[in-house]
Nucleic acid binder design. Structure first.
Length: 279
DNA sequence: CTCCAGGTGGCGC
DNA sequence: GCGCCACATGGA
C-alpha cells in the first residue's frame, strides 16, 4: 500500500463523509482515521496529494471519474449536485459489514448508525475490526441489544446465521444480475429494496443500484417533479431509466447534496448569517 | 416534552 | 397495487 500518491478527480472528505461509510472520523489535524477490514487506516489529502494508508482499490482510484460523470444525463439538477461535491467516489467496501450496517440503518440517523456499528465492533470484534458473520451468528439477542440495535437485532442475527450456514452467499452477489441479487438479499427479514440496493452499490460493484431513501426521494421530488403528484412507483421507474449505468454514483451526489442543503460550504459559513433550514 | 431518523413487513382496502 | 402503522432508541 503506497503512502503517498498523486490523485486527480478525488475528494477524500466528500467520499468519506457522504454517508456511504460509517467508520471514518475526521481528526482535528485534518487526518481521517478509520477501520477497513482488519486494518486501522489513517489518510489525509492536500490538494492532489493523498498520503497515509492509501488503498487505491478501496477508494476506487483505479476508475476514471470523468468517464463515469460523462455517462450521467445532462440535466441541471444532477450537474448541480456533481458540482457541489466533485471528486466524491463510491467506495468498494466489504459486503457483510455493509449489509449489517444498513440493516442497522432503518429509521436511524446516521450518527446513530455510526454508534451501532462502532458498538458491534467494540463488543464483538477484535482490534476494532467489524465482527465476522459467524461471531454475530453465535451472539444472543440480549447481547446484540446492548449495541442499541432495538428491533433490528433479530434481523441482524438472522442475516448472520444465514451467511454462516451458507444459505446466503454474499460472494455470489457481484456476479448476479441486479434483479436477481436483490431477490437474494430481500429474502432476509428486515431487508427490503433500499437496504439491498445500498449493499449492492457500496460493496458488490453494482454501480447502477439506486437506493431511494427519504433524502433521495425528497431530492428527486424537489428537483425533477416540483409540485407534481408522483407515486413512489413512478419515482423508481424514473430513476431506472434516467441515470444510466452509474446511477448509484449519481444517487450519492444527489443524496449528499440534499443532506448538505441549507448548510453552507465551509468557506462561506458565517455563524452570524448562516441560518440552517430544514426542508 | 415532541418529532423524527439512509425502512420494512403486515395489515386492510 | 396503495396507504397506514408498529417497531426500539436516542438526537435535536
Amino acid at each position: 500500500m503506497p503512502d503517498r500518491i498523486n490523485v486527480s478527480d478525488f475528494d477524500l472528505a466528500a467520499t468519506l463523509e457522504c454517508g456511504q461509510a460509517f467508520r471514518w472520523n475526521r481528526e482535528a489535524d485534518g487526518w481521517f482515521t478509520g477501520v477497513v477490514g482488519q486494518r486501522r487506516l489513517r489518510v489525509r489529502q492536500a490538494g492532489n496529494t493523498l498520503e497515509g494508508d492509501v488503498d487505491p482499490r478501496y477508494f476506487a482510484l483505479d476508475v476514471s471519474l470523468p468517464k463515469i460523470i460523462a455517462t450521467f444525463p445532462d440535466d441541471p439538477a444532477l450537474s448541480g449536485a456533481v458540482a457541489n461535491h466533485r471528486g466524491l467516489r463510491v467506495l468498494r467496501q466489504e459486503p457483510w459489514e455493509t449489509l449489517a450496517s444498513f440493516i442497522a440503518s432503518s429509521t436511524k440517523q446516521i450518527v446513530q448508525i455510526r454508534q451501532i456499528v462502532a458498538a458491534l465492533a467494540d463488543r464483538f470484534g477484535e482490534h476494532d475490526a467489524f465482527p465476522a458473520p459467524d461471531v454475530i451468528a453465535r451472539a444472543t439477542l440480549p447481547e446484540l441489544a446492548t449495541c442499541k440495535l432495538g428491533f433490528r437485532a433479530k434481523y441482524l442475527l438472522a442475516a448472520a446465521q444465514a451467511i454462516d450456514r451458507g444459505t446466503l452467499r454474499l460472494d455470489k452477489l457481484p456476479g448476479m444480475d441486479y434483479e436477481r441479487a436483490v431477490e437474494e438479499l430481500t429474502k432476509l427479514h428486515g431487508v427490503g429494496e433500499k437496504i439491498a440496493a445500498c449493499t449492492l452499490l457500496f460493496s458488490c460493484g453494482h454501480d447502477d443500484a439506486f437506493p431511494i431513501d427519504v433524502w433521495v426521494e425528497r431530492s428527486l421530488r424537489r428537483l425533477y417533479f416540483p409540485g407534481q403528484k408522483i407515486t413512489a412507483r413512478q419515482l423508481r421507474q424514473f430513476t431506472r431509466s434516467h441515470f444510466g449505468p452509474y446511477a448509484g454514483w449519481a444517487q450519492q451526489y444527489l443524496f449528499f447534496s440534499e443532506r448538505r442543503r441549507g448548510r453552507l460550504p465551509v468557506a462561506a459559513a458565517d455563524s452570524s448569517l448562516a441560518s440552517p433550514r430544514r426542508p
